[in-house]
Write a protein that binds this DNA or RNA. Sequence first.
DNA 1: TTTGATATTGATAATGAGTTTCATTCGCTG
DNA 2: CAGCGAATGAAACTCATTATCAATATCAAA
Lengths: 147, 147
Amino acid sequence: MNQNTKDIHSIFSQYLSEQNLRMTTQRELILKTFCKQKKHVTAEQLYEILKKADPTIGHATVYRTMKLLTEAGIARELNFGEGSIRYEPDTSKEHHDHLVCVKCGENIEFLDEEIENLQKRVVSKYGYQLVDHSLNLYGICPKCQKS
Amino acid sequence: MNQNTKDIHSIFSQYLSEQNLRMTTQRELILKTFCKQKKHVTAEQLYEILKKADPTIGHATVYRTMKLLTEAGIARELNFGEGSIRYEPDTSKEHHDHLVCVKCGENIEFLDEEIENLQKRVVSKYGYQLVDHSLNLYGICPKCQKS
DNA sequence: TTTGATATTGATAATGAGTTTCATTCGCTG
DNA sequence: CAGCGAATGAAACTCATTATCAATATCAAA
């Protein structure tokens, strides 16, 4: 458990106590395991991984906890139109968008300030108050183009 | 049935015969009813509307037909992360993105050439070949801001 | 440290969107 | 109008996610 994980742990603890919720061994394990993942995982995938560490862990607990992590600002929900939600760590202060390969699923995160600003311009043009946005670009990665 | 609808009907007919599929009364009814809708509908919503005109129509037929209309380039799938797919007519030659009110669901279509171009720049920067993209902005509309 | 109020858990049932299966019916071509 | 394959509707089935609920775990207070 590195420094980063420790910080996140205390962020989660604090969030929970603010909401009069409790830190449990399951929530600790889920948080730790989620943070270790290199790729964006679905709740189901995470459940499969977690079962190896704790075969008694429940399906519903994973889903519930991912929801909590999202509320606590630790995880972020991604919807690539696959039918299930993926989660990424929300540790990066910087927001970013995604460029996804439709063949292999490879996934690049990018940030384009100009696009961000233009989005704000569109929103304010219509008198809206921006809450969130999602920009996903779907393409074929260089590797897949060859094959 | 206006001129526009008539055109679309023949586009669909042609698509079907190209695929060795058949035009049926159900498909005609679904197409006609879909084109009449002012808002983006889900397959389920369209099914409810269709039942009034033809109470015998089947659930699966609506889903199947919307898939066909999408393949034929007549409908376009929209995913606002609600858990179900909405469909919009793909008659507008111009592509556009969506600005959705998270309170009331009001939905504005917009097109920003600059954003489109910047997207292409991002994609080519990573050597990808652009297939599709989705940009949804979520906000609170002026009306909902007041209440 | 024990207690007690209540949050949490895991098993399981339920939901909701969408798909598959299959026997029956329909549309078209000969 | 016969026949073959496509299309339909009913119902069963996925798959992701959520709700229910009895049993259990947490934590603050005594």
